[in-house]
Design a protein around this nucleic acid. Sequence first.
DNA 1: ATAACCATGTAAATGGTTACATGATTAG
DNA 2: CTAATCATGTAACCATTTACATGGTTAT
Lengths: 191, 191
Amino acid sequence: MDVKTVCLGVLSLGDATGYEIKKHFEDGPFSHFYDAGYGSIYPALNNLLERGLVSCAAHTQDGRPAKKVYSLTQTGETALRDALHQPPQRDKVRSDALVMLFFAHLLDARHRRRVYAGYLRHFEQTLAELKARDLDGAGDDRCFVHGFGVAVYGAAAKYLADNAHLFLDSAEPEPDSESGIENDIPAEAAQ
Amino acid sequence: MDVKTVCLGVLSLGDATGYEIKKHFEDGPFSHFYDAGYGSIYPALNNLLERGLVSCAAHTQDGRPAKKVYSLTQTGETALRDALHQPPQRDKVRSDALVMLFFAHLLDARHRRRVYAGYLRHFEQTLAELKARDLDGAGDDRCFVHGFGVAVYGAAAKYLADNAHLFLDSAEPEPDSESGIENDIPAEAAQ
DNA sequence: ATAACCATGTAAATGGTTACATGATTAG
DNA sequence: CTAATCATGTAACCATTTACATGGTTAT
């Protein structure tokens, strides 16, 4: 299932700009099972437009590039239905963090902690966002997929929290306050 | 984290052929968080060989292509360590099945059931395989990652089993035995 | 003032999948 | 006798990421 198809799907929920479609993948209902950047969304939208699967209304604004609101056409809806009826490919998962933790014995204590803490935080934050999400007006299927995300992210967060002791403390006595600069921000580790 | 790096990782567990590396992604300890096909493994191995990160011993056999057993070199181990100490990219997940279920209202009852049943079966089977896996001789980190897989796949399977009624029965009365050919193999749906 | 947000796009590079090509051996 | 397993590889194609390019507005 490529970006083009999923863009059609997003547009079936209502007209949107490329920018807004991206937000569906970041914050919105797709966040836990699909992702795409501008570099694939904008070309996808142009391709769909050429093929008549979407139409486009440009709203000029001053100072900014014209906002281009895309809508699903009749042909587009047919194409979407058709694509959704193909046999699904199996899930693609690729986790840097798990590869690193699998080889944790090759990591220095600092990086190990950083990766672990970042990964845990990633699941906790996503879970919190999912739970905070407003599902008014969402149909059964949407709620179902949302619930799936909560179940799976919840299990991941719980497992990581329960086993944190394996990675986050004592393994190395951790010469406390060897300080110096030592900000040890585990900040971007979730990336 | 590209295929090349993960191949180095696999080789750090012991010498292996391209064919055997692939099995690590299919059946082995990486199955739930990484995947790669021959089309990326063989070129990766050749690239690593050129760069001196692995060495290769060819064992000729009759009838078959010579078996090429790759080993991690000293340089290769350093490169692996180095790559493992980079900041991890966030997990990439892409699920056709969840996209389809998200748009379940656009699917006909037959396909909806097929996708659901296939997805549930996928998690149940993988979970069973994970649980059946022999962890003797596996270190802490490997057990930890294995446990993570069990936790997450278990949660997914449970959620899908608990909510199966939403997709697998009565929604449409399902004109039982409209038969004809009607094998309705939900077989490859897990793909 | 500074960061975050709004808003679009292209080109090059990277990386991966799929199809093709080959063919013996072993288990059911 | 059939299917699965063993075993390697290439070339064409496809899809995606990253870096570049631009620049006003709004909230802190």
